[in-house]
Design a protein around this nucleic acid. Structure first.
Length: 604
RNA sequence: GCCACCGUAGCUCAGAUGGCAGAGCAGUCGCUUCGUAAGCGACGGGUCAAGGGUUCGAUUCCCUUCGGUGGCUCCA
């Protein structure tokens, strides 16, 4: 429930938002919507309706499913209510009075109990203090609410609000509770703001990696193969390979060593690691091989641990950094699968660091810096970090064991001067973690990097190294994936660049466009030369007109279009057009190569 | 997994209150040899997601399954 207000915001901007007029407008619009819904369904039960980033929602328990036509009707009625200029009036009540008022509203009664006991606010979020119980009334609608609201409905601009869609949502986010109907809406101060927001939604739709994945022939998912399993096509495979190549190189420079491990391992391994205790719900059923149970790996760690254990380790060997592009399989419930961003089989740019306790702080600092540098190379500039702490219901080890590592992660974040917030109880079963989110070209946040401390596996597998004193010592372990998974990272990258990858990542960097058949030979010759220089080029030999070839190259977002006709052959040149539609005119092959190489080096 | 909606050619979509299925783009083949975002024409392509039911007859109505979309819970 931490993210019910502005999941994609830093804590500071979240606090600013709650104080803003826009927040009051949206909160008030939610009440107006609830009024319209209750008028339509007098027996309907209302749940909660907070503002969220970019809008608001309200949850209802209604006798029948809502249709798109209902939304239109409701929106129309909302405009009438808004133009009625009804005051929002606040009143403070005792719990018993409130219970009487909401006697036929079971969800409100539950909220009132929470308020009266002092544990929760009206959205069910935990509270330290015992809050007062207040109601807000506008026109005929009364709602249990802490506020704040605009002073009257007239302050909501009827031309700047819109109901967007209906969705299911569990009461209090708990899947054992009833499924309610949630209406999402948006409201802004001006019609222009609304329009801009809708434009942004449209732009996001155009950038959808699932659509671009098909249009640019990057990848597909196939019903025959199975949901959540990705097929990389040659173009997408090239982008992925280039990404991996770059990262591998950086890892080598950064002191990592590459290892490889199998996709399955015996049940005993996963018992020892604790995965069968803590993670089994995400693992696939075991395979029977000659009477032994084997599991498909959901993580790479147990294998890397075994590599560590394969010989006696000295304190001089540490830190050891084992990296692997490790493909793992996790059971994800069918409803959560989404393009490349949520899949069932994926490849992590995984690594496990085995370090001496005294090396721990510096190693975490280094990993954090390493991650940020790699992400910056791909054009990401804004980061937000999340520190996840122990979940008592789902944690190995004792609470005290968690304290020092949690502090170490916190200190690293402070030293790196990255804005972060604490997600209480969101840690993995084996230790606290830092997650990094990047902000893309449209301002959306995506979680990629994860850096996880682990004091559990070294104990479970009894990992030791021989110290200076000749005694056995226990190393610490850090799990980390920087891009997260290749699938998710590619998805984010596609949306970030809207498919127009920077030249260094573009699967086809230049397309040669001969104007007529007689230009093919020269085009092939130029292509050969550019290819020899390391450029990825194609010659468009289709019997199409130049205009059509240019149009198709534009749509494929190919960085350079090199037009070749009589003039170019005469001058031994190419005419260079960029996908930005800028026409650079004719230049020699070597001039063009110089230009391309500089663009590649600058990663633009 | 849950709630709602959806599934017609490779893609985007039309279609009929139940009576032999259509367009554009893409593809193939011809013609055209062209100067910075779609040249012209012909042809091929569909168990209307799958299975079952109702019916003289189902792509159309009903049920089940599979797959997808938007959310919820969960998450790299």
């Amino acid at each position: 429930m931490i993210d019910s207000v502005g999941g994609n915001m830093s804590s500071q901007s979240k606090a600013d938002y709650v104080e803003s007029n826009l927040y009051r407008i949206r909160h008030s619009a939610a009440h107006v919507m609830a009024q319209a819904v209750v008028e339509m369904f007098p027996d309907g039960k209302v749940a909660i309706g907070p503002p969220i980033e970019d809008g608001f929602y309200y949850d209802f328990d209604l006798p029948r499913p809502l249709t798109p036509e209902d939304l239109e009707t409701l929106e129309k009625r909302m405009r009438e209510i808004v133009s009625g200029d009804y005051k929002f009036e606040k009143e403070i009540l005792q719990a018993d009075e409130a219970r009487k008022l909401f006697a036929d509203q079971p969800y409100k009664l539950e909220l009132i109990d929470g308020l009266a006991e002092g544990g929760f606010d009206e959205y069910g979020e935990p509270l330290d203090e015992k809050p007062e119980i207040s109601i807000y009334t506008q026109d005929t609608f009364v709602d249990l609410c802490r506020g704040p609201h605009v002073s009257d409905t007239g302050e909501i601009n009827p031309d700047a609000m819109k109901l967007l869609n209906v969705a299911g949502a569990y009461w209090r986010g708990d899947e054992s509770r009833p499924m309610l109907q949630r209406i999402y809406g948006t409201a802004w101060e001006s019609a222009d703001d609304l329009e801009q927001y809708l434009w942004k939604l449209e732009e996001a739709r155009k950038r959808d990696h699932r659509r671009l994945g098909r249009d640019l022939d990057l990848f597909s998912v196939n019903e025959e193969v199975g949901p959540g399993l990705i097929l990389w096509h040659p173009k997408g495979g090239m982008v992925r390979k280039l990404t991996e190549d770059y990262c591998r190189e950086e890892h080598e420079i950064g002191g990592y060593e590459f290892v490889y491990s199998p996709h399955i391992g015996k049940a005993h391994l996963w018992e020892t690691s604790g995965h069968l205790d803590w993670y089994q719900e995400n693992m696939y059923s075991p395979l029977d091989i000659e009477g032994q149970e084997y599991y498909l790996k959901p993580m790479n760690c147990p294998f890397h641990v075994q590599i560590f254990k394969s010989r006696t380790r000295s304190y001089r060997d540490l830190p050891l950094r084992f990296a692997e592009w490790g493909t793992v399989y996790r059971y994800e419930r069918s409803g959560v699968l989404h393009g490349l961003l949520r899949v069932r089989g994926f490849t992590q740019d995984d690594a496990h660091l085995f370090v001496r306790p005294d090396q721990m702080p510096e190693e975490i600092d280094q990993v954090l810096e390493f991650s940020l540098n790699i992400l910056r190379a791909f054009g990401f500039k804004d980061f937000q970090a999340y520190l996840s702490t122990r979940n008592p219901q789902k944690a190995a080890g004792e609470a005290v064991q968690w304290e020092a590592p949690t502090e170490a992660l916190r200190n690293a974040l402070e030293r790196a001067e990255i804005p972060f917030q604490v997600d209480e109880g969101e840690a993995t079963f084996y230790g606290p973690k830092i997650d990094l989110k990047v902000r893309d070209a449209l301002g959306r946040e995506w979680q990629l990097t994860t850096i996880q401390f682990d004091f559990t596996l070294p104990e479970r597998f009894d990992l030791t190294y021989v110290g200076e004193d000749g005694q056995d010592h226990r190393p610490y372990m850090i799990h980390r994936a920087l891009l997260g998974s290749m699938e998710r990272f590619m998805g984010v990258l596609i949306e970030h660049f809207a498919g127009a990858f920077p030249v260094w990542l573009a699967p086809v960097q230049a397309v040669l466009i001969p104007i007529a058949d007689r230009h093919y030979e020269y085009a092939d010759q130029v292509a050969g030369e550019l290819g020899k220089a390391g450029l990825r080029v194609e010659v468009d030999q289709r019997g199409e007109r130049m205009n059509a070839k240019i149009r198709d190259a534009q749509n494929l977002k190919i960085p350079y279009m090199l037009v070749i006709g009589d003039r170019e052959i005469e001058a031994e040149s190419v005419s260079v057009r960029l996908r930005s539609e800028e026409n650079l005119g004719a230049m020699t092959i070597s001039e063009f190569l110089e230009r391309a190489k500089s663009d590649i080096a600058e990663r633009i």
